[in-house]
């Protein structure tokens, strides 16, 4: 698949002292698509995202993201790769409380030169994005703690988007939001990724979100975990 932004081949992973959590023979995602990754909590979504971000290495198999074979990179190279090509959004507490809103958004550019390469005026770009995600540029100088939770998630999106990474990985980014804020956030993240040609992999346990994405995939569909042996009673 020439247009794939990520391709997994024969990937297996298990946490230390635990049975295998992931066994993915093949999976790939088209560049520019916005994909919902469904799965109950504890099903291995976060583990998969960590593998795609290059934080974890698979026991076995290949992971190619944006043309980089992560299994052939060193730890430092994978960190540099993540800084340059991936935007990551956590469920909550995305922002460093001791930096202003603007400095939080600028942080990826400061930590990775490659990410900042095509940006002539980082501050201007950061303000533009803060405005684009619907927080309003006036919030730039504020401390993070002054923001509502919904706005904090939008700033996290702004930070993930700055410098146009190839892929945004979002791990349950709407779980901490109420219904209205969730819908607003969803609309913004889908629009911005579409406008900027960023691939979005959005992990959630919320089945109702599927209708808003290009398509949704259940982790269970791609993950061929060996069925755990039936527990024998009496022991």
């Amino acid at each position: 698949m020439p247009n794939a932004v990520l391709t997994l081949t024969d990937v297996q992973y298990h946490w230390p002292n635990q049975p295998s959590v992931l066994n993915i023979p093949h999976w790939s995602v088209q560049s520019g698509s916005r994909v919902l990754l469904r799965g109950a909590s504890g099903s291995g979504k976060s583990t998969l995202l960590s593998l795609l971000a290059g934080i974890l290495l698979p026991d076995h198999g290949r992971i190619v993201v944006n043309g980089f074979d992560l299994t052939h990179l060193s730890g430092r190279e994978r960190d540099a790769f993540r800084g340059a090509h991936i935007g990551y959004i956590f469920q909550q507490f995305n922002l460093l409380p001791w930096l202003s809103v603007l400095d939080n958004v600028l942080l990826p550019l400061r930590l990775n030169r490659e990410r900042a390469r095509e940006i002539a005026n980082p501050e201007k770009e950061a303000r533009r994005i803060i405005d684009a995600v619907g927080v309003g540029a006036h919030a730039s100088a504020q401390p993070v703690s002054a923001l509502k939770v919904g706005d904090q998630q939008k700033i996290a999106l702004a930070r993930a988007m700055i410098g146009k990474p190839a892929l945004i990985l979002a791990d349950e980014p709407t779980s901490a939001l109420d219904h209205d804020t969730r819908m607003e956030f969803l609309e913004i993240v889908l629009n911005e990724c579409y406008l900027n040609g960023i691939t979005l992999l959005f992990a959630s346990h919320d089945l109702q979100l599927g209708q808003f994405f290009d398509y949704s995939v259940a982790l269970a569909e791609i993950n061929h975990r060996p069925t755990p042996p039936p527990t024998v009673g009496g022991r």
Binding site: A53, I55, G75, R76, D79, A80, F81, R82, G83, A84, I86, Y88, F90, F93, N94, L95, L96, P97, L107, P108, L111, N112, R115, R159
Partner: peptide, 16 residues
């Protein structure tokens, strides 16, 4: 710890 995880998500090596 949360701050450290955020920094790592932004490409910071644990050495940083």
């Amino acid at each position: 710890r949360r701050e450290m995880a955020v920094l790592r998500s932004l490409g910071a090596h644990p050495k940083l």
